[in-house]
Every structure is written in C-alpha cells, then in structure tokens.
Simulated scan of single mutants.
Amino acid sequence: MIRPTLALVLALSSISVAPVVAQTRPTTVEVYPIAETARLGTAIWRQDVAAARATDALLAASGGQAPQGLIGWIVSPDANGQRVRFLSGQPAAPQAYKDVVVDSELKAGPVTDAASAELSADELAQFAARNTAGQAIGPLRCAAQYNAVILKDPQGEGWLVWLLASTTQANIVPMGGHYRFHISADGRTVEKREQLSGGCLDMDRSQAQQGGQTVGLVTNLVVAPQPLEVHVFLSLLNQLPIYTVTGDKVWQVRGARISQVRMPAR
C-alpha cells in the first residue's frame, strides 16, 4: 500500500523494521464470519485513509513541514466520522496536540488545537497498544516500514492491531507480510500475534489487467480457509478485485463483497 505525504506518514505512523525476509512455518490464524471480515477490512481501510487525509491537512496547515515534536496519532470515532488526533511529547507520556475530523465521505476538515493536552484512559491504551504491537513484530518482515491500524476487539475487551506491510512503489500491492495482534485492554500485553500470510508477496498491479480490462489479482492463502480482512482492505485501497485460493476453493474479494467463485465442473 502507498499513502500520500509519505515522508510524514513514515515519520509518524509507520514502524521501522529491519528489511529481513524470514520464512516461517505458516500457522492457521483466527477467522471471523464473512460479514465481520468485510466489516473489519472496511474499518481498516477507512482508518488508514482517514490518517492519510488528516496528515495531508496537517502538512498544508504547517507550510508543508511536519510540526516539531509529533510522535504519532490515534484515530477515534466521531459524530461526523473519525477524529485523527496527533500526539506530541514522549511515547511513554503522550499528549494531545492537534485534531482533524475526517467525515463519512473521507474528507478532512480543518486542523484544530486539541481541547486539552490530557488523553483519556482509552486513548492512552490505544496508543500503548500500537507501540506494544510494534515491539513484538515477528520474524517475517516483508517491508522496511509497517503501518499500524488499531480497532477495538469485537470479541473481547482489548484491541486489535494490524501491522501492514507498506511500499513506496505505486504499482506494487504488498499481498504478504501483514500481522494481526490481540492486545490487552490496557494496551501493554500481547495476548496473541498472528502472521496473516505464509511469506512475502509483492504483486504488480499490471498483473490485474488482461486484454485491456481489470480482472484482479490472484493469491494463494495458506493460513486461513477463507479471505481475511487484509484482503478486503487491499481490495478497497487499490480498487482491484482480489481472488484468494484456499485449498480447493476460490474466493472473490471485491471491496467489502466476499463471495465464493463457482468453478466449472471437470
């Protein structure tokens, strides 16, 4: 995936890791019902885009330069969409700095000063969860930078954190190397780490074209019996259908629509 205003994004939201490709034995990961998979993938995409749009707004309001002292951001639901709160201070003691509300159409509003520098307990836990996941990334590392998305765990009291392999190449879709973490409610303990692919796989967008038409990208999935939320995210982000092959089944992911493809009888 690639975002605009890359320099600031990498400085604030991404997690730097050594560019190591380590193949590990794939382990089956937890899967959610299809409807929940689609919902989570859409939420990941919306948060990722909101952070990018808010970053653009912050840069525009700062004369093209990132304000000094920023250490990251958190994204929270807002009555009008999502609030991207930029943080300053130290990672162990973050403070609210600037807010940007991104509406339901994913349009960023004005940059405003945070009403108070003090973060709520929930905000502190969310930022801690992001940092906890970043410090616990596994040996499979398919990119030098990973982007983080944090959501409430729909099945528990804690957090779900995704570390998403990123790229600076506009034509590349990083299909492999993503992680999902289950983090405790206080944001400080990794309860489970899940590697969402068997290895690294960067796919060229041109592979989705055939005869001048967009047909989609095809990938094998060995860690789950159905598409995962990251496939929904990648399909929405790249505006491409993604076909996942799981054993003897083929699935189509077209944005938030997931369906099994009927194969012709032999």
Rank of each mutant, 00 (worst) to 15 (best):
R3L: 14
A7M: 04
L8T: 15
S13H: 12
S14H: 12
S16Y: 10
P19E: 08
V20S: 09
P26S: 02
T28R: 12
V29L: 05
Y32Q: 13
A38Y: 09
G41N: 06
T42H: 01
W45L: 13
R46P: 15
Q47T: 09
V49W: 08
A50T: 01
T55Q: 03
T55K: 03
D56G: 15
A57T: 13
L58F: 04
S62P: 14
G63N: 01
A66Q: 14
P67N: 08
W73K: 11
P77L: 08
Q82P: 02
R83K: 15
R85N: 07
R85E: 12
A96L: 11
Y97K: 15
L106F: 02
G109F: 06
P110C: 07
T112C: 08
D113E: 14
S116K: 13
S120I: 07
S120N: 07
Q126E: 14
F127E: 04
R130F: 11
A133K: 00
G134W: 03
A136C: 00
G138Y: 00
P139H: 03
R141L: 15
C142P: 01
Q145A: 11
A148F: 08
A148Q: 11
V149K: 02
K152S: 12
Q155Y: 12
W159H: 07
W162N: 00
A165G: 01
S166R: 05
Q169D: 11
A170D: 10
N171V: 10
N171A: 11
V173G: 07
M175C: 12
H178Q: 07
Y179N: 03
R180T: 00
A185C: 02
E194F: 01
Q195I: 01
S197A: 11
L201N: 14
L201V: 13
A208C: 07
Q213F: 12
T214R: 09
V215W: 09
L221C: 10
V223W: 03
Q226C: 11
L228F: 05
V230R: 09
V232C: 08
V232P: 05
L234N: 06
S235V: 01
L236S: 06
Q239T: 13
L240S: 04
P241A: 04
Y243P: 13
Y243W: 00
I258A: 02
